[in-house]
Design a protein around this nucleic acid. Sequence first.
DNA 1: ATACACCTTGTAGTCAGGTACAGGGCAAGG
DNA 2: CCTTGCCCTGTACCTGACTACAAGGTGTAT
Lengths: 133, 133
Amino acid sequence: MTLTIGQLAEAGAVNAETIRYYERMELLRAPERTAGGYRQYGPSELRRLRFIRRAKALGFSLAEIRELLALRVHDPRSCGAVSRRVDVKIQGVEQRMREMRSMLRTLKRLRASCATGTPTVECPILEALDEDA
Amino acid sequence: MTLTIGQLAEAGAVNAETIRYYERMELLRAPERTAGGYRQYGPSELRRLRFIRRAKALGFSLAEIRELLALRVHDPRSCGAVSRRVDVKIQGVEQRMREMRSMLRTLKRLRASCATGTPTVECPILEALDEDA
DNA sequence: ATACACCTTGTAGTCAGGTACAGGGCAAGG
DNA sequence: CCTTGCCCTGTACCTGACTACAAGGTGTAT
């Protein structure tokens, strides 16, 4: 069940060049090679690739994603340090979610004002943002 | 209560050049000028600028932000079209929030595994992402 | 054994989103 | 009036994240 770079690209819905790029950027590890020099990937690399694409779609930079991927507990002694970094990431994600919620409220209010036919003289998106400054 | 570009930049925590750039990109409207040619901004431009920065931090592109800013109901007759576009945006934001929640669960699970001292052989971030493929 | 699709490295180009001058103008305090 | 600091336009440059070759090697179906 090994994949060539092209198959991995297809499965992950990215360009094969992107996979090589991620390898250079150390988001994906350099995989085993066949005798002929072809990269060989397994299912874990596909999961990793999909994770990267999702995180990207959520607005994380590749540098942040590299950090997210590095958050693992290999050694119980490193646990404290890892835990602190995880906390920072959690707080960051929670903050983003709060802002997402605020934006969602704004959009829903806009839709409601539209349904009632009230023309919005001042943009409600802008108004709504005074709240959570 | 008018602001120069530098004051607006300071208040919005951006570079003054960025404000000119946003003006060129039509995210901010070209403001009134003083006799000497200086841009003059009011508080609504500051709100708009802050909105842009927030939306950017949430991972919206400037093109998307331009669309968000354009979603206003000036004329009741355009309501249907605007409403549909708002719905699309709402669905997009809701989708993002679901993925954020999934990522948050993953991070919290990671922290929990750390607290109990269980070393994670396989990266739980990657494991957790099998769920919501 | 020969197409043909797919792989290799390396380098260069692209697009978004800024950021940094250069060369000059304006405003306010001393 | 002059200095100092901020403003103007225009152009060039930068980083992140790809994307596209070029020039050549591999793998397999016929």
